[in-house]
Amino acid sequence: MSIQASSIYWEINGKKILNNVSLEIKNGEVVSIIGPNGAGKSSFLNVLSGDIKPTSGNITFDDVNLKEITIQERSFMRSVMSQSQQIVYDFSVKEIIEMGWLDRGIASYSEDFKDAVVNVAQECSVSDLLDQKFNTLSGGEQRRVHFARTLIQLWRPSDSKDPRYMFLDEPTANLDILHEQNLMKLVKEKAREGIGVLLILHDLNLAAKYSDKLFLFKEGSLIKSGSPEEVLERDILSYVYGLTMRVERDPLRVNYY
């Protein structure tokens, strides 16, 4: 079970944003897209989640073309966390998390609803915030709440074998080091439960530590893909980022200052 993107092109007003990108996300795998600003990372994520129709190219979720999957079915298969917008009205944290709870019209899901919210809130360490107003939280706390919502969206009874995917655009932005590590460990744990995870990360060392596979983007093209050991290589990184880098092995570590 996997998501396959093949030969994705996307251009607006004659400007190529994505140029022949192909990649695969398998269930149970953590893959990360890295690359400088404007490399097309977020655009690719938008294409993959179906927000944007690519100019050409194909996307399949478990061998079904994305075009043939309805908006609602998509929401059951994948959740997306992106740089979020301001919320105008005073929703409580609990209400925001519950928004990830989709009505599948299956009774067993509804019965587990309350437990699921409590468990996920605990995992994301937002249990103490549940009754607070979302707008009064700090940026980092808001990110954690949105992450909890992303997890709730993919929640299933433990015996479920549904293929599921999670796309996270810089999930660790605004997080302190403790919560950053906790979130990444949780992501890894969810992958072990069978979710296919696509991350966009700026911190190369974070990406190296937690990803099974890396995809390096530059100017809309996929420059290199493979295991962190293969991709995080001095010459390529220095070329892509335009900055001299040193790469240490065992443990793998990128130094740029």
């Binding site: 938008n46 989640s49 927000d51 908006i71 609602q72 998509r74 929401s75 059951f76 959740s79 997306v80 992106s82 979020s84 917008q85 919320i87 105008v88 009205y89 929703f91 925001i96 928004m99 990830g100 989709l102 969206q153």
Partner: peptide, 13 residues
């Protein structure tokens, strides 16, 4: 209220 792209990703037309 989460924003139009988010609502779309949660299955709202």
């Amino acid at each position: 209220q989460l924003g139009e792209p988010e609502a779309y990703r949660l299955g709202v037309d």
